[in-house]
Design a protein around this nucleic acid. Sequence first.
RNA 1: GGCCCCAUAGUCUAGCGGUUAGGACGUUGCCCUCUCACGGCAGUAACACGGGUUCGAAUCCCGUUGGGGCUGCCA
Length: 502
Amino acid sequence: MNNIKTRFAPSPTGYLHIGGARTALFNYVYAKHNGGKFVLRIEDTDFERSEKRFEEDIIESLKWLSIIPDEETVFQSDRLSIYRSYADKLLKEDKAYYCFCSKELLEEDRNKLTSENKKPMYVGRCRELKPGEALLKTPHTIRFKVNRNTGAATGFKDLIRNQYISVNNDEIDDFVLVREDGIPTYNFAVVIDDALTGITHIIRGDDHVSNTPKQIMLYNTLGFNAPEFAHVSMILGADGKRLSKRHGATSVNQYKKEGFLPEALVNYLIRLGWSHGNDEILSMEEIIKYFDLKHISKSAAIFNTEKLLWLNSHYIKSKDPFTLIDLINDIRDDFQGALNIDIKTASLVDSLKSRAKTLVELRQKLDFFVNDAIDYKDEIFSEYSFNESNLAFLKLFRKFIEELNNEIFNCGNVDLTYKTDKENALKILKNSIESIKAGFNDFLFKNNWTMKEKAMIIRLAFSGEKVSPPIYEIIFALGKERCIQRIDKFYGCINGINNTKV
RNA sequence: GGCCCCAUAGUCUAGCGGUUAGGACGUUGCCCUCUCACGGCAGUAACACGGGUUCGAAUCCCGUUGGGGCUGCCA
């Protein structure tokens, strides 16, 4: 169709952060919506601050979010000679000039202008200089010769605001194109790369609006066609200030570590600034189908973790337990043991998934199951005073567990790892739990007890906590042996305390 | 300071001259219930202010206020 091509152009000076991820997402889905291409360009011209690990993180994080470039990644550090040739061209045409002012001198100029309440622009000391060979051997930068004092303005149409934004040329500094070390500056390299790689639409942060007129000037004098621009407003922290480390997690990898699903982050990020009617839950596929620039918000948005958490819990709930086990194992810290991929673990994950907002939280809720060393805390015994009748109940309950049909736990001796048959495993899991439920209800009924009055002591015995997954699920997951061990242990604790009292 | 941008509930937003200003998160209450959740139902809360334009403005224009960005040999 119209060959739309977008790009995400981060500098590898930090991990991929939330704002960058959203910009990348906007560019990606805009290209995809229009049947175009999306590319990644690493702007690594700041050798001081660029780091390989950040570069890798950006690429990995984008991949995790399913933002996949269509072409090979471009690195600006590979293209230095290209920028140089364009700088020479501008020099030759008298559209740029050498500047020999030292950083210290420029600093002085700036301070002076600022103290006089004037805009700190380059004073133009070297603008008309015709340097000889000798001078050229001394440190120098190359500056763009802005066409000033003509009353002319330079602007562009912003696709998000749907309006022209222009600035009087007199407001624009003779900005540096090439630094002392021969490396191009951002404004120079970005224009050359976007033009040469055929970028048609640039969706980027609001913080670039004031750079855009400079870049337009460059497009014009270099003889390139300027692309379309769309400036997305910033993401702010809860205090309304620009999002930074102070606000907690800001990098995508942190969210992964904290147990967020990529679907949730993508969904949250796309809705932060873009909308499609009243739709809240959107898959990447739907986003691509509906995405447009028209519905991108013009105002800054405050990052709200609560809503992200809500979306995350939504996506966790929608996954089957076996997938969840894989995901948990994928992000687990080294000190945490891996979860077994079996039907018993799955049964707990299945009932716990609606109780956890993150994978990390889900994993924590499984601690009582993974770890047999339950520590029955003193508070339990002070809050619930257990007596002889409780002990009698535990004895009967122990017997009930002992007498449960082994087939329930063996699940008919079927190999029930998810790898064989996930659907079937889930079905048998549910049947087993139903069997336990039926048996347990029968046990209660025969003794004229209610679930309500007996649930807590069982819960405490099995988990040591006042909050746990449902009883039936625990029985199935722990299995006979472990259930009995825990009943015995708990029985011993109560008994011990009662004896001390006497 | 200068230049640029923005403005609907606590938060994300729908709205694009006529609506009881809609949805979602959060929050509150109720229901469900073996705990905690999930779920269901109900409630709470907004057009920053002041001028215009118009028969009629959340919607269009101007100003005020507030917020944000840029003002680097960072991107």
